[in-house]
Amino acid sequence: MTVSTLRMAVRSPRRIALSQKLGRWDIRFSPYLYISPFFILFGIVGLFPLLYTGWVSLHAWDLIGGQGKFVGADNFAWILQQQKFWLALRNTFSIFLLSAVPQIVIALIIAAVLDQNLRGRTFWRMGVLLPYIVMPVAVALIFGNMYGDKYGLINTLLGHFGIPGIQWHSDPLASQFAIATMVNFRWTGYNALILLAGMQAIPRDYYEAATIDGAGAIRRFFSITIPQLRPTLIFVIITATIGGLQIFDEPKLFDQYGTGGANSQWLTLTIYLYNLGWGQLNFGRAAAVAWLLFLVIVLIGLVNLGITRRIASNEGRNS
């Protein structure tokens, strides 16, 4: 603020009062004007659902029957006493870790590789994005066939080598691993391209200078790429966290019922809230789970942001 005010003060004597005023308004209000479309639209289509859900969570509310009596925090208290809720929270985290960590690491590798002076650049770049265009119905079918416990592709292959098949659906870890694979399949190439865009924006002379100083590829990667990439990395990590904790499609599609498994092996929080809301028609409790999930995500997001900032800036300082 001070810099631009100063600059204006310097220029102002040559301007007439009106344009001076307009210029000041321009500087003061333009930033708000530019971000306003988001907030206006959010006010129209986003805010109401948010408040509505909050209102619902404080009531006994049947999905179809509608609003019942005000119950305060009862829905929240009930949820927190449910073993299923904590199980779903645990599963959500474990699927999130199984997917987000390898996803970002592999995306970074792919991006670094694509950042080179490759032959057929367009081909490779568009190629890694292909999984993202496959429609969910095909994804469900393909992974359903791969992870079939008896006739699935993977277990059939293992069978050829005399290895007993993996119980993809009944074993909690195996089922969560399978779901994480589905997530990673869809999002790794996508994140790789985002990271690539960030990498491409790093001035090339930084690398040339480092090379002249005798830095090897790895050293260049950690002391130039990673710190310079910080804003993009923060973006990828935050969105992967938010998306990962809200994971819904993949566990929903993982079996024919979509309710999280016979022993809740892959019951996630979003599936749990769906089961409560649309299975048991208890909209009040479902809304409470939605709010709890929201709080969890914000909490983890903040922790993540802190860690990412620290890592990225330490790297920067060390170099």
Partner: peptide, 23 residues
């Protein structure tokens, strides 16, 4: 404001369907 923008993506979308349809 930026944190607010990011936080809006953390709202679980499943429940939003009903109020959004009402709107």
């Amino acid at each position: 404001l930026l944190v607010f923008v990011i936080a809006t993506t953390a709202v679980p979308t499943q429940l939003g369907v009903v109020p959004l349809f009402i709107a």
